[in-house]
């Protein structure tokens, strides 16, 4: 197996191990946060890097450079996670998102935010203005995660989800959501 294939396999091992750990924790009722997942992946990638680097170093000089280059993707995972944390710490997202819902009837309509794996964000106030359709939510920032979807709820209608663009979130764009009532299943 070539070194390049090995390194891809190393990343797969990191991803698979993280996923399996997450599934195991889910099965015993512990929901791993995005930060937890990233932290686990970082530890596994670091461990793999620390284990594989001496192995690569012991190879013949010709094979050594190729083996070390092959570890670059692992290093990239580590750097990516670390820089994303640093970026969020230095330049955090706004904890505020607003916009307007367009609907035939705005009464009793509530709005929420979903993050990674459709996990709800704690956000509020969750009512949509029943006259103008405006909404404005404060939410709790989570390291590694951000609101990815709006979910609109109205009694008698099925929930509707709308994607949130990262750039829109960052620039505090006012979102416009069009709600059409479909009978709930």
């Amino acid at each position: 197996m070539s070194d390049a294939q090995d390194s891809i396999s190393d990343i797969s091992v990191v991803a698979e191990t993280t996923e399996k750990l997450s599934q195991f924790l889910d099965s015993i009722g512990i929901e791993l946060s995005v930060f937890g997942l990233q932290f686990t992946a970082l530890i596994i990638a670091l461990a793999a890097f620390i284990i594989l680097l001496p192995v690569a170093w012991k190879k013949t000089q010709t094979a050594r450079y190729a083996a070390i280059v092959g570890l670059a993707p692992l290093l990239l995972v580590i750097v990516f996670i670390a820089t994303s944390w640093l970026g969020q710490w230095l330049n955090p997202l706004p904890d505020y998102i607003s916009g307007r819902v367009v609907a035939e009837d705005l009464h009793d309509m509530s709005i929420g935010l979903l993050g990674f794996r459709d996990r709800p964000f704690a956000a509020g106030p969750d009512y949509v203005d029943s006259i103008t359709g405006r909404f404005a939510l404060n939410y709790q920032l989570r390291l590694g995660d951000y609101p990815r979807q709006f979910v609109l709820k109205k009694p008698g209608c099925g929930d509707l989800e709308f994607p949130i663009s990262y750039s829109g979130l960052k620039s505090e764009q006012r979102f416009k959501l069009e709600f059409i009532c479909r009978a709930s299943p």
């Binding site: 607003s98 106030p125 009512y127 203005d129 029943s130 006259i131 404005a136 404060n138």
Partner: peptide
Amino acid sequence: QRRSLNLLFSQQGYIAESILLE
């Protein structure tokens, strides 16, 4: 300190109105 509040006006027998204060 929050940037938004909701005022919910309600009375039995009436459809509640929710007003956003931003």
